[in-house]
Amino acid sequence: MMKKIDVKKKMIFFGILVVLLLLFSVFCDYLTPYDPNEQDLSIAKQAPSAEHLFGTDRYGRDMLSRVIVGSKASIFSTLLLVAIITVIGTIIGIICGLSGKVVDVVLMRIADIFLAFPGLVFALAIAGVLGGGLHNAIIALAAVSWPKFARLARSQTLAIKEEPYIEASKLAGTSTIKMVFKHILPNIIGPILVTGVLDIGTMMMELAGLSFLGLGAKPPIAEWGSMMSDNRSMLATQPWIVLTPGIAIFVSVMIFNLFGDTLRDFADPKSSRRK
């Protein structure tokens, strides 16, 4: 019981951090000390100082402002990506779980094909074909990441579809759509949401990875992965230009991962005890 209370406290603490991070991203445009896109070549590559806390990049843009504004592209793109794969995966999983037979076999074999390739490599190939840009990077990662949620939703649906209350609902003449929203979804959404939250950190890293490889945000949009990529040749000479967005990724991924972990422990105390 004490353990559960501890977990709850942790979850609330990390939940608050997540909310703060999201609020920070929402209002980031109002928090920047300088225009993040304004170039001033006369102050290019300045080391961190009182005037520019994170220094300036090769175009003389304030790094602190760019890191702050970069949170919007980095965090919201990740949330959008996770939302897309969660929704699409869940819909496909429920369809498979409920319909069975040919539809299930076909959709699950398609999911197997996507799972057969290493995720990031496959995403790289898709992003390469679609071309650069944050939207295409999101599409590429979504294309390779939905099967995990489809499998989870399918297994959960299969587990509860034989439950007496579902049978009773069927006998009462409830339509399939109504049954899904009233009985199935509320009972399977817990593990899916936990998995989704746990995936935010991973997806943020993968999105930053694609951006780092030049397949993400286009200039002058500030996005942490592409900021690291664009400036990586200065790692040895002006390290702050590369390290500051890197630290931002590290902190954000850590907050989301820790929140996801405690959320999982809270939702499933058995797994926490097993640890």
Binding site: Q39, L41, R58, Y59, P219, P220
Partner: peptide, 16 residues
């Protein structure tokens, strides 16, 4: 991107 100067020129011109 294969000529390192060209992306720099593009982003510099974008701002100016």
């Amino acid at each position: 991107p294969s000529r390192q100067e060209l992306p720099l020129l593009a982003e510099s011109a974008q701002a100016s």
